[in-house]
Amino acid sequence: MFNYAVSGLIYGGAYALVAVCLVVMFRMVRVLNFAQTAIGAIGAYVAIILSEHGWAYLPAALVGAAAGAGVAVICGSLMSAWFADAPTERRSTVAIAIFITLLTLGFRIAGSTPRVAPELFGGSTFRIFGVNVTWAGLAVVLAAIVLAFLVDVFLRGTRLGIRLRAQSERPQTAELLGVPSRWLAVGVWGVTGAITAVGLLVVTPSRGADFLSIGLLILPALAAASLGLFRSTWLAVVGGVGIGIITGMTEYWPEVKQYQDIIPLAVIVIVLMWTQRKEVWDAAR
């Protein structure tokens, strides 16, 4: 069973990475970005197609990341041009509409046949406690942890991070204080778009996935991010890795395995219901 748990690590790392991006988006640009994985999937697919054309892993991944960033910047510009002052709820609804649009667009271009992605480190593994672990799995978990750490330090300790937090809480006030809100926000979109693209690229080989199923990884990522109510990068990492490991463990029981995709959903419902149990009234006073 330990074997199965470890095999879930690579998914868990990817969920955690995307979940950290969701937290960053929620905290810095006030949007629960349903479109995160759809944006990332486009970048990952660009990388896959390039490697099919004989590109080496690193340049393909870099161009893929740039493509993810590009798509994200377009979405972010749209959001700040039209919905700068809209409440989080409406901005997130816009993200749902962007998700639908990008997913349909990507599905049309990429088709429904699963693609084989290049494997990071050639799929090589190492043994620990008698269990095979892929270097890629370890790398993506470490990447999630490092990202969570960097984001935490950045938001708390740097001038730019504090500016970003300020602009998220009160975009107009921040603008009055001379914070270039709009460009900062679009920048955050771009960076998270690039990171998500790389994260999804790493996880794709083991998923053997088509565009739609990569795009739908938004659900476990949302579940992971919900653990910290979309505000804590650390809990997002814990949530992502945890969901990955639990999902991996279900492989051990074939009859449970077929329902494994329900696990993250149960996490979402339980976490949100528990944390919000005292919220009897809405915010409108």
């Binding site: 997130s92 329902y259 979402i268 419902v269 919220e279 009897v280």
Partner: peptide
């Protein structure tokens, strides 16, 4: 029932989770 405590986009996430869970089943 979740809507009695959850609002806005959280409610959207939970209803989407219900929808997906039903589809898995």
């Amino acid at each position: 029932l979740p809507a009695l405590r959850l609002r806005g986009i959280n409610l959207g996430v939970v209803t989407l989770a219900f929808s997906t869970a039903l589809t898995v089943y």
